[in-house]
Design a protein around this nucleic acid. Structure first.
Lengths: 235, 235
DNA sequence: CCCTTTTCACCTAGGTGGTAAGAT
DNA sequence: ATCTTACCACCTAGGTGAAAAGGG
C-alpha cells in the first residue's frame, strides 16, 4: 500500500518531503504476513523472500539520493515456537541487540529520475545471525521479530550538510513486511508424524485443506525453490 | 604493462595528472595478441575475453571519479580471413562507423580510494554488431580492428565544469588489447580437411605441435568454456 | 528438547564455442 | 564463398528448503 510514512514529516527539505514509496508485491507480503512471515538467517547470509521492493515518486528528478534499509526490533522479546499449539510464545527478554547495520542500495547515489524510472529492488540484501559478520550483511537475532525500514536520503551538496541531516531524509515502514528471524522454518510443522507430540492431536479431517504454511508459500512463490514443488499447477 | 598513457598529459587537473593504470592479466593478453586476438560480437551482446581489468594508482583518495571505456577503429579497413594462408587480408575501406558509444563502469562515480582498493573489472561490458542496439552495449563493425581505451574522469564539483572538461580526464590505451571483431572465430581454421584449400598444403609433421589458436586459447583460459576442454591438465 | 550448522539435490540465471542453417 | 544467426550441450555461479548432524 501507500501507507508507511514515518513520524515527523514536518520541517523536511522540500526535495524529500514529497517523496512517496509504494510497496511492490503487496498482496504476496500480506499473504505471508497472515501466516506470520519467517525469514531465514544463516552464517553466510540469506536473501529475504519476498524481496523488499518499492516504486518511488515525488523525488526531485535532478537531485541525488541515497536509498537504504535497516531493521528495527518490533519488541523486547525472545520467542519460541510452541509445537503442540502451532503458535509463537514469548520466551523472555530479547538477547543483546545485534550490531546495528544498514544496507545501502548498491545503485546509490543516483538521481531522483533514475530511482523513479523503475522499481527499486533490495535483492542483494542478506540477513545473517553471525554477530562477527564481516561481509556487510544485516545482523539479526534469531527468534526475534523485526520491522524492515526504508530510507530516502537527499545528498545535500551544501557545506556543513551534517547540520541539516535530520531534514534531509524520509523513512517508510510497511507493517506487512514484519517478520520473525529464524535459522530454520518453525511454522511448517503441521500434524506431526505419529509417535511423538504430546498430547496426541485429534485425527484431522483429510478433506479440510491445511492452510498453506510458510514453507509451502515460499516454495510456491520463490523461483529458486521450484525444485520442491509437487504438481504442475497454473500454466 | 604500465605503458599506455595517451597523448597530452600536460595542462591536466592535478587530481588526474598522476593517475596510473596497470593492465591486469597482461601475459594472457599478450598471448592472445601474438595469435591475433578476436572478439565475438553478437546481436544480443557478448562479453570480452580476456576481460579488460586495471589496477589504478595515483588518484586522489577523496575525489570522485567516473571510469569508462570506448573503442577506436585501428584503421580504415575492412578485413577478410584468407583461408589458405591462415592470415588476415585487407578487403577495402571500412564500413560506415558504428554509433560511437561508451561504457561507464557500473560503480561510477566513486571515490579514488574505492577505485584503488582493488582491481577494476569491466566484465559487464558487452560487444554487439547490432547497429540498432538499445541495451547500451558497445556497437562494433564485424571484420574491423579496434583498440580498447580506458578513461579516468574527475568529477569536477565546480560550476561551469564543462569548461575544464579537457583537463579533467586521463586516457589509457594498451596496445596488447587490440582485437578483430568477428561474428565467428576465423583464426581457428588450421590444416583444413583434405578436399579443399588450394593450393594443397604440404603434409604437416604430426609431431610438431600446432601453435595454440584463438579458439583453443579461449577454451583453455575462459572458465565458461570448460565444457570444450579435452584432457584434464594441471591440478 | 530446542535451536543451529552443514551438506545436498534441484533449481534459476547466464556465459562458452560448436554446429548447421540462413543470408548475400 | 563468405559472413551471420539461431540453437544447443555444457559449463560457472549462486539461491532454495530438506534432512541429518551437532551443540547446549
Amino acid at each position: 500500500g501507500w501507507a508507511g510514512e514515518g513520524p515527523g514529516s514536518s520541517g523536511k527539505n522540500r526535495r524529500v518531503c514529497h517523496a512517496a514509496a509504494r510497496l511492490e508485491m503487496g498482496s504476496l507480503w500480506e499473504e505471508f504476513n497472515r501466516l506470520g512471515t519467517e525469514m531465514i538467517v544463516t552464517k553466510a547470509g540469506r536473501r529475504m523472500f519476498p524481496t523488499f521492493q518499492v516504486k518511488l515518486s515525488g523525488l526531485d528528478p535532478l537531485a541525488d539520493y541515497v536509498l537504504l534499509m535497516d531493521f528495527v526490533p518490533l519488541d523486547d522479546k525472545r520467542y519460541r515456537y510452541a509445537f503442540h499449539s502451532s503458535s509463537w510464545l514469548a520466551a523472555g527478554r530479547a538477547d543483546p541487540a545485534a550490531p546495528g547495520r544498514v544496507h545501502f542500495h548498491p545503485d546509490s547515489p543516483a538521481k531522483g529520475a533514475q530511482w523513479m524510472r523503475q522499481i527499486v529492488s533490495f535483492d542483494k540484501l542478506k540477513l545473517t545471525n553471525n554477530l562477527l559478520d564481516d561481509n556487510g550483511h544485516i545482523i539479526l537475532n534469531s527468534m526475534h521479530r523485526y520491522q524492515p525500514r526504508f530510507h530516502v536520503v537527499l545528498v545535500d551538496p551544501r557545506r556543513d550538510s551534517e547540520r541539516f541531516a535530520h531534514q534531509n531524509f524520509k523513512s517508510f515502514s510497511f507493517p506487512e513486511t514484519q517478520f520473525m528471524a529464524v535459522t530454520a522454518y518453525q511454522n511448517h510443522r503441521v500434524s506431526p508424524a505419529v509417535g511423538w507430540g504430546y498430547p496426541p492431536s485429534l485425527p484431522r479431517d483429510p478433506l479440510t485443506p491445511l492452510p498453506p504454511q510458510i514453507t509451502q508459500l515460499k516454495i510456491a512463490s520463490n523461483p529458486f525453490a521450484k525444485g520442491f514443488r509437487d504438481g504442475e499447477p497454473e500454466p
